[in-house]
Design a protein around this nucleic acid. Structure first.
Lengths: 144, 144
DNA sequence: ATTTGTGCAAATCGTTTGCATCTGA
DNA sequence: TCAGATGCAAACGATTTGCACAAAT
């Protein structure tokens, strides 16, 4: 059962470890979703899209499980939720400190190239509060 | 019918004009909602809250009309929609250029004091795109 | 064996829409 | 008069939940 020596098997092991490190059991579904999420570079996916992809590659997860999984990944730091347009939630596989472009016409989220954008002159937070994170959304429109 | 000389009547006229200037008929409901929105300083309201307030002061608008009205006000520049948490839309009566604090525990949006926050080193937008707006959300948590 | 995850369908929540009725200019 | 506005209830899309079943340690 553990005799495979292909790249796939090696990658599987890595993903399994990654899930374990996050405190999550490496189940079939979670592994499949993790692979879709993390083996194609940085992505910004919606639950619906991820669900479609999973079904397409022959892993018939339920939509509910996709939602559960995305939230678990988000909580354990494997993903980061991005709030841009109040109708859908997008999950970003890039968890490092960065900001986003949002193309309204296409409902698409894109990372701002690293190290760009400097936010300075931040105000004092109100009494007893501290800054958890600063999100910058650069909204784009077609040049006209 | 137009013999009132109280402050209320004067304010009503001002609101009526404001709606007319925005290209909207000053109907009973729109006037009532405008008054709730614009006579208490800067506010960040959800459709649900505004609806409750209207009913509370004896103006039984329907929720659908509240949504319509908020969107019309948004489109005509009287309000500005703020996307912070993907579940609800908040409308900001302050339409000037400014940014927001968001207190996650309480689901509350607060203006960042004017003139604070400088965003610099903005990246080039992708081909054929231009920057429509830059939104900064400073997410706050309780200090602990 | 026990704990944790999964699937399904139903429920929920915010928001939108269709359509008959009303109302302001 | 009559375009535009409103209310209601039904429709909607994204997300959550309850619970019986299945899989992982």
């Amino acid at each position: 059962m553990s005799e495979l020596t292909s790249q796939d098997a090696v990658q599987d092991e890595a993903l399994q470890q990654r899930l374990r490190d996050a405190g999550l059991r490496p189940t079939r579904q979670r592994l499949a979703l993790a692979e879709l999420l993390f083996s194609k570079g940085d992505r910004h996916v919606s639950a619906e899209l991820l669900h479609e992809e999973a079904v397409a590659v022959g892993v018939p997860v339920s939509l509910a499980t996709v939602y559960n999984t995305l939230h678990q990944f988000n909580q354990s730091g494997l993903l980061r939720a991005v709030s841009v347009d109040s109708t859908k939630t997008y999950f970003d596989t890039n968890t490092s400190d960065h900001h986003h472009f949002f193309i309204e016409e296409e409902n698409r989220v894109v990372d701002v190239p690293a190290s760009h954008i400097t936010v300075s002159d931040l105000p004092e937070p109100p009494q007893g509060m501290e800054i958890a994170r600063v999100d910058v959304i650069v909204r784009l429109r077609e040049k006209g």
